[in-house]
Design a protein around this nucleic acid. Structure first.
Length: 803
DNA sequence: GCGGATCAC
DNA sequence: TATGGTGATCCGC
């Protein structure tokens, strides 16, 4: 029997240059269409906040190397400390080693909160519903404010320059006139006044301005006031000016059409500077193009490493590799990558309201929210078991309280009954003081699935207007329950709050949340995910199919002559049903797109990264040909398949190999794939269900004799470690060959790579167990499995071998 | 709903 | 280079 390898030529260039459309490309089109440049979002970031506060209050510290925090961890450090190599987020004891004279100032959060509040008092004037992040950052949407400001007279945009700092602590002033000129210390420099009455800093000279002479500047200072213009830049300068005047601290800022960009902008001219991306596509793309991925909020060191392993260093490369990323990462992850690479981001700041502190008002608001939520839930035909109350107080502290009830709720009364209890507890908790709220949210989650609904939600289904779910079902008989849901609500209320939420919700147990005041409706980010699913399936299913020479059933590994995907899926279904009760809701033939059916398995994904890293792929993956074994990674089919595995493996009592299955999970997966690739004729149909059985039992054990699945030679030994060593050698030969031939083929190599661990296992190495090994495949990386053995052991294997 | 992993601060 | 503590979010179980 021959086993065919499904080859997906996933070359980035191909994908972007040909007419072939991938999921990612479809999404790109939609995202482009939904690009919204109409908002002006500002990100304000205080410079070295904690240290700055301490230096402000104790100017002596300015001249010394100082850090704020404790011996266990410092939060930030000043210029002098940095010269010694002391950085933010460094343990104090290490910093002390680097810089013995380092003054470590203990954290004083109470003070920082007070300062933060002063900052906030300014920001609220520009956007009453600005979004504070921690103590030293905030996002503002100044779109509306800007419009208003256009008509403002000058005096409304004028500010007096304080010569004396009136900080509440009454300590020495830090904004003395002398300092308002030039400051020697680049990290605490203050604004300089200019002819146009704006101010700039030493670090960020404005091209159109020119430096004044000393006398001119003095003249200007004599005027004692400064007028700001009406542009976004001017507004942000004004904000920064006022912040410094009020707190004696400098801030950096970014201005852009969305939050992500604004955040990245504020980093651009740090400290004490600002940067703006003009609200046009070209400016956005220019900014994004060469930006290192690490600069992107949400991409930390782990993700950076993973992307680097794939040859992705800049946002532009992030875009070029969209197809690969869509296969390797979870939907949320790669959607996020795509957004980033297109310079898209959210413009929605959570709306907060002015203080509500009376119990009556709070209950009334709570009930209102429950009413809104109930309406939406009922529109959607949803019932949930968990009600969550979210509260944000005037100090911007957020609390969530959740309560799960036995019978699912959907009506105003039902939800309110639960929410009220939680609210009461919170009110009682601070009594006799009032709860001082800025935001309240009610969330219902833990939705009943379609099956449960059938039995428990008849009333709600009946409640629906004729034609919603029922129609969708009729029109799309083969669709999964989730797609029914999506489709039904998509057509019925495109603009609803839930559309937005739904985009991020792929499973029925995700949640819906309503905050008050209502968020602005924004259908942009959802359009894509909601709509693309089917289109994508079509595209991939019909287009990529042609790429494949033949199809192989991942269950029985029999070649399927019919290259029609549906036929294949029907066959897979049959295979699966042979050993397990069919789950109609999950395994529907038509829902399996080509891509779904042959999506990378979590292990494969992980191994791709490993292999990419090990091969030191400097080349872009554009040129990489990905080869994937026909595997069982369809979401639904995988589940079913694992059930089969579990069932049959229990029945068969293979005990030839002594290691526990849990320690060998990965190896087993790979060995079965190696067999399918390299030694197909030895992989018999009945054996493919033994994935959880010891690695070689499936393909390599014949009549209690061990047969090497690579070279297909019977091994005389029954000693497992000797046998494994042999297989190891066989496999490594392949790797070496591959490497020397410089055939970069991650998946195939990956399989080889993993087979190495089979060998090491035999030598007593422990590998990860199934649970850690399969966790979070979307963001899985070799570095992210710290609990168990590191892949470095396998690296040693290859290195040792190469010696 | 929980716990692990990642990320931001 | 490591190194901390917390909260949010995603993800798999």
């Amino acid at each position: 029997m021959t086993v065919h390898v499904v080859r997906a030529h996933l070359t980035g260039m191909d994908m972007s240059n040909t007419s072939r459309r991938t999921t990612a490309d479809k999404l790109v089109l939609e995202l482009e269409q939904s690009r919204d440049l109409s908002c002006t979002i500002v990100h304000i970031d205080m410079d070295a906040f904690y240290a700055a506060v301490e230096m402000r209050d104790n100017p002596e510290l300015k001249e010394k190397p100082i850090a704020v925090g404790s011996m266990s961890m410092l939060s930030t450090s000043n210029y002098h400390a940095r010269r010694f190599g002391v950085r933010a987020a460094m343990p104090g004891f290490i910093a002390k080693k680097l810089c013995p004279h380092l003054t470590i100032v203990p954290l004083n959060f109470k003070k920082y909160e007070e300062v933060s509040k002063e900052v906030r008092e300014i920001l609220v004037e520009y956007d009453p519903s600005f979004m504070p992040i921690g103590l030293d950052e905030a996002y503002l949407n100044i779109t509306e404010y800007l419009e208003e400001r256009q008509n403002w007279p000058e005096d409304k945009r004028s500010y007096f320059i304080k010569r004396e700092n009136t900080a509440k602590n009454g300590k020495q002033d830090v904004t003395a006139p002398s300092e308002l000129k030039l400051n020697e210390d680049a990290h605490s420099s203050s604004p300089i006044l200019f002819e146009d009455n704006t101010f700039i800093t030493e670090e960020q000279p404005v091209a159109t301005s020119h430096l004044y002479t000393e006398e001119q500047r003095d003249q200007e200072l004599l005027l004692n006031s400064v007028v700001f213009g009406t542009s976004a830049e001017e507004v942000v300068k004004e904000i920064r000016f006022r912040i410094e005047q009020k707190t004696g601290l400098t801030a950096s800022a970014g201005i852009a059409p969305n939050m992500t960009l604004a955040k990245m902008c504020s980093d651009q001219n740090k400290p004490n500077g600002q940067y703006r991306i003009s609200p046009d596509r070209q400016s956005v793309m220019d900014f994004i193009k060469d930006l290192p991925i690490r600069k992107v909020p949400g991409i930390g060191k782990v993700t950076e490493k993973m992307l680097k392993a794939l040859g992705i260093l800049t946002c532009n490369e992030l875009y070029q590799q969209r197809t690969l990323l869509s296969l390797l990462f979870s939907e949320t992850s790669w959607h996020n990558f795509l957004d980033v690479s297109l310079g898209l981001g959210s413009m929605d700041l959570e709306k907060t309201f002015s203080e509500i502190n009376t119990v009556e008002e709070q209950y009334r608001l709570c009930q209102e929210l429950c009413r809104d939520l109930a309406q939406d839930l009922q529109k959607e035909g949803l019932k949930g078991k968990t009600v969550t109350l979210k509260l944000k107080n005037v100090n911007f502290e957020v609390k969530t309280r959740a309560s799960t009830v036995l019978s699912a709720v959907s009506t105003e009364e039902e939800i309110f009954a639960v929410a009220k209890d939680m609210l009461r507890t919170e009110i009682d908790g601070v009594a006799p003081h009032p709860l001082r709220l800025r935001l309240m949210g009610i969330r219902v989650s833990g939705f009943l699935n379609e099956e449960e609904k059938k039995y428990q939600q008849r009333s709600i289904i009946n409640f629906l207007k004729p034609g919603k779910q029922a129609n969708a079902s009729l029109l799309q008989p083969g669709k999964s329950s989730h797609e029914h849901f999506t489709k039904a609500s998509e057509t019925s209320h495109r603009e609803s709050f839930f559309d937005k939420k739904r985009a991020a919700r792929q499973q029925s147990n995700q949640e819906l949340l309503i905050n008050k005041p209502a968020n602005k409706q924004n259908s942009h980010d959802i359009k894509s995910s909601v709509n693309t699913m089917e289109e994508t399936n079509d595209a991939i299913g019909s287009e990529n199919l042609n790429e494949c020479h033949s199809l192989t059933c991942p269950v029985c590994f029999k070649e399927q002559r019919d290259s029609d995907l549906e036929a294949l899926n029907r066959h897979i279904d049959k295979c699966l049903n042979g050993t397990l009760v069919k789950d109609n809701a999950e395994i529907s033939t038509s829902e399996n797109s080509w891509e779904n059916a042959y999506h990378f398995s979590p292990d494969n994904k992980k191994k791709i990264f490993e292999m990419c890293q090990k091969n030191k792929m400097n080349k872009s993956v554009d040129t990489v040909q990905l080869t994937e074994v026909a595997d069982n990674s369809t979401s639904s089919n995988t589940e079913a398949f694992h059930k089969v595995v579990a069932n049959t493996s229990k029945e068969r009592e293979h005990s030839l190999l002594s290691e526990t299955a849990s320690n060998m999970y990965l190896e087993q997966n790979f060995s079965s794939k190696i067999i399918s690739l390299e030694n197909a004729e030895h992989f018999e149909k009945s054996e493919c269900t033994q994935e959880t059985q010891p690695s070689y039992s499936s393909g390599a054990i014949r009549d209690n004799v061990l047969v090497c699945p690579v070279c297909n030679v019977e091994q005389k030994t029954t000693d497992l470690s000797l046998f494994n060593r042999h297989v190891d050698v066989c496999l490594n030969k392949g790797i070496i060959q591959e490497l020397t031939e410089q055939i970069v083929c991650p998946v195939k190599s990956q399989i080889m790579e993993n087979s190495k661990s089979v060998g090491s296992m035999g030598r007593g190495h422990q590998y990860m167990n199934p649970t850690t090994g399969t966790k979070r495949p979307g963001l899985m990386t070799p570095q992210s499995t710290p609990k168990k053995a590191k892949p470095s052991t396998s690296k040693q294997t290859i290195e040792t071998f190469l010696k």
